[in-house]
Design a protein around this nucleic acid. Structure first.
Lengths: 88, 88
DNA sequence: CTCTCTGTTAGCGAGTTCGCTAAATACCTC
DNA sequence: GAGGTATTTAGCGAACTCGCTAACAGAGAG
């Protein structure tokens, strides 16, 4: 999961999805990035494999949905270990 | 920064540092991990390069200090984008 | 100076990542 | 079925990652 967040484009994909209401078709996502369409498609598959997005086939489009709960649970959960002083 | 968090050993290093009060010499860190000492040393350098730890030379030891504020600021700050609904 | 302890740097090899272009697949329309 | 649209898969090459072992460097002790 953290490995999927290592690449700036993938983090940006998640942000774009979020600020567009949580879902977008692959094409609308890909046109926002400098890298080629197949490259973006592969980034999407990495995110999907990590469980951070879910894909829905609608007609000839594929809609990508942000899995916000997982993102918050895993990243937020990990960060929470550092929240409080350990000896407190 | 996120790339430095991609590897499980490096995330674990940060946790160990935190739960040991924020700092440990390299040897005490390395003995906790299955990988060889030079490999751990390299992980430490990746973390240092990312700014997540700071090294202090004391005698023949090198004490690694967790940079908790940076960790929380960057990861927490990024996660905060997803905190609230975008249209709200 | 030499020996030891602590830790790093050097260098290798297998595997992965990430960019690209070209070709294929899937669906819709005619 | 033919053609267009949306998107993925295939395959390549350059670069990076991450494990290892071996050799090096700095500091303290005898």
């Amino acid at each position: 999961m953290f490995a999927a967040l290592a690449h700036a484009v993938r983090r940006q994909v998640l942000l774009v999805l979020h600020f567009r209401g949580g879902s977008l078709p692959a094409g609308k996502l890909a046109e926002r990035f400098a890298c080629s369409w197949p490259t973006t498609s592969r980034h999407l598959r990495v995110l999907e494999h990590a469980g951070l997005v879910r894909v829905e086939r609608r007609g000839r489009e594929r809609i990508y949905h942000l899995e916000r709960p997982l993102l918050e649970r895993v990243v937020g959960g990990w960060l929470a270990w550092f929240r409080d002083p350990p000896q407190g």
